[in-house]
């Protein structure tokens, strides 16, 4: 069962496609991250999902409903937090939460109280006097307290210092665990993504480059180093699954994107018959960078 089903989605601004023929499913109960460089179309995609923008073509179903037809009933189940959200500056934190509360029948006051103390937010402080981190916290409380079935976060950690980022992430994880929530998050903060999420999709230039579980991704990628040991190098045998291949002196380095111990060694032997091969697991951040660089290289070659 999927919380979000996106089929052939396209969103254009004039002649530019911000999202291009994108098909993606977000499984129910998953914590799903969208990764991609600036301008990749992540925020546009999230805005389409909450019906802030209309797709040019294709469709997106959110909690079983077409995103263009989301009614107040569905909105009660969807929480959305964006880095660029403007808050009613004139209100205090308390007034803000008081105002939000009656809109959601399932508002959990106990959870609100717990999050308030966890985030150490002063109720009587006006929103306009809050730091960026505190504003994100206030927004998160207003969203988490009604226990949404689907939580959509657009760069929630952007611009937060490590301490606040950790608090926010901690709050998110703890709260999400209390219910069977689906979390869809667009973020540049890959460390947090790796820590929090179980699925990752990578978007570049509005196109989906990959979508799979973090576990599978971590298993699939390895940084490989080969000590040629004065032996032969058969360049024709370089595998297409190797990203960022470089050879300096007696050493060759690359990222294997389809790692399997036996297969990768076999490939290496055909390329470096006498080389000593070592494969290192990669953090998500390095995988993302390797993929982004290879995309850029491909795009550059195409241009």
């Amino acid at each position: 069962m999927n919380a979000i089903e996106i089929t052939g989605l396209k969103r254009s601004y004039g002649r530019t496609d911000a999202v291009h023929d994108l098909t993606l499913n977000v499984p129910e109960g998953s914590v799903f991250s969208l990764l991609g460089p600036n301008g990749a179309g992540k925020s546009t995609l999230l805005k389409i999902l909450v019906n802030l923008l209309e797709p040019t073509a294709g469709s997106a179903r959110v909690l079983g409903v077409d995103s263009r037809r989301l009614s107040p009933k569905e909105r009660c189940l969807i929480g959305y937090v964006s880095e660029s959200l403007q808050l009613p500056e004139w209100m205090t934190v308390g007034q803000f939460l008081d105002y939000c509360r009656p809109f959601y029948p399932a508002w959990d006051k106990a959870l609100e109280k717990k999050l308030l103390s966890q985030f150490a937010l002063p109720l009587d402080r006006k929103l306009k006097h809050l730091s960026r981190g505190m504003r994100v916290k206030a927004l998160l409380i207003s969203v988490l307290s009604f226990r949404p079935k689907l939580l959509i976060l657009d760069e929630p950690f952007s611009g937060l210092d490590p301490v606040v980022r950790d608090e926010v992430a901690q709050g998110l994880v703890e709260t999400a665990r209390t219910g069977d929530w689906t979390v869809l998050m667009a973020s540049h903060d890959i460390e947090e993504v790796e820590r929090l999420t179980d699925h990752v999709a990578m978007i570049d230039e509005g196109r989906l480059r990959l979508s799979e579980s973090v576990e599978s991704l971590l298993n699939r990628f390895r940084r490989v180093e080969v000590d040629l040991q004065g032996g032969e190098f058969r360049s024709a045998a370089v595998s297409s699954t190797w990203l960022g291949f470089e050879q300096t002196g007696a050493r060759a380095r690359f990222v294997e994107s389809e790692f399997d111990d036996r297969t990768t060694r076999a490939r290496c032997e055909s390329c470096f018959p006498e080389g000593a091969v070592t494969a290192h697991p990669m953090p998500l951040r390095d995988i993302y960078l390797a993929l982004a660089r290879s995309q850029r290289t491909v795009a550059g070659a195409r241009a």
Partner: peptide, 8 residues
């Protein structure tokens, strides 16, 4: 980009 726009 306004927080209110998604209120149910």
């Amino acid at each position: 980009s306004t927080a209110w726009v998604l209120k149910p």
